[in-house]
């Protein structure tokens, strides 16, 4: 990891221009924690790193949108998201989850953009943002586009981010009426990558579940939406029996994988328990106003 240069573009256009060469050795970064780990392990040897630090001032915004949704700039640190009153009000599940998501030093430097771009299924933020219906905002040589967070991940460390493209932020739809929760289950030390991470968001109308999104991270090869579990919820009463049906559907549906933190079979059983518990917690959390 030697003999590379670090450049500091002062505009998106300049950053995109630097990325346009299509060179595998060129990468953009801001917090740099994940990148440093890859470089130290010899997994990645850059020739040029594009530091987005100069763009931070205009890209670390956290603001409510006119329709009641939320817009978070790619350069917002996880700490700033955690502390943001706007987030606490319009998507409290994010602020609550932050404390368990990484240690304070990492949260101080890691950015929302990097957390989305990394593509490690053990990241906690993608399932939460996906369950909230979030979209990744991208800009590239061909202009701007969006991609739903839930379909942004195509494999282990693989995303729909194209070469030459950058994440500029994430947009959440209005959360009013939605109840959300994220539960991270670790099976070794308390502070660890999740063995299973479950994020849910549901809307209860007149005593029935009108809508639900259930995402699982960590236990599967990539972030996965559990649609049959969602179907098991729809129009049911928000009670233990309905949640148990959804949990069984989730266990049936998810393709879990073996890892140092547990066997695939065990993760399936954890998923069954944690889908139930996360749904119950979401119900308890109450709806966003």
């Amino acid at each position: 990891m030697r003999n590379f240069d670090i450049v500091h573009p002062s505009s998106w256009a300049e950053a995109l221009g630097l990325l346009s060469g299509g060179d595998e050795g060129t990468r953009a970064f801001s917090g740099g924690t994940a990148l440093m780990l890859m470089m130290k392990s010899g997994f990645y040897a850059p020739t040029r790193l594009i530091h987005l630090g100069a763009l931070e001032a205009r890209c670390s915004f956290i603001e409510a949108t006119a329709d009641g949704g939320l817009l978070i700039g790619a350069a917002a640190t996880l700490s700033s998201v955690e502390a943001s009153p706007v987030v606490q009000r319009s998507a409290p599940v994010i602020a609550q989850a932050m404390k368990k998501l990484a240690n304070v030093r990492v949260r101080n430097v890691a950015r929302v953009g990097g957390a989305l771009a990394h593509g490690d299924p053990h990241m906690d933020l993608p399932p939460i943002l996906a369950a909230l219906g979030g979209e990744v905002l991208l800009c590239g040589p061909d202009g701007e586009r969006t991609c739903p967070v839930e379909s942004f991940y195509t494999g282990y460390l693989e995303t729909r981010l194209s070469q030459g493209e950058l994440i500029t932020g994430v947009r959440l739809p209005p959360q009013a009426g939605w109840r959300s929760a994220y539960v991270k289950c670790t099976t070794r030390a308390a502070d660890d990558w999740p063995t299973v991470g479950v994020a849910v968001s549901l809307r209860v109308v007149s005593g029935a579940i009108a809508d639900a999104r259930i995402m699982v991270g960590a236990a599967t090869e990539r972030l996965t939406r559990l649609t049959s579990a969602e179907a098991a919820l729809r129009l049911g009463a928000p009670d233990a029996a309905t949640f148990a049906r959804a949990a069984d559907a989730a266990a049936q549906e998810a393709v879990t994988v073996d890892s140092a933190s547990g066997s695939a079979g065990y993760k399936t059983e954890l998923l069954r328990v944690y889908v139930r518990r996360t749904l119950a917690e979401a119900l308890l959390n109450g709806a966003v106003q």
């Binding site: 070794r188 030390a189 308390a190 502070d191 660890d192 990558w193 140092a260």
Partner: peptide, 11 residues
């Protein structure tokens, strides 16, 4: 230490 966990304060 990412995959070989040792006790921390929350343990």
């Amino acid at each position: 230490l990412a995959d070989y966990k040792i006790p921390g304060l929350n343990d």
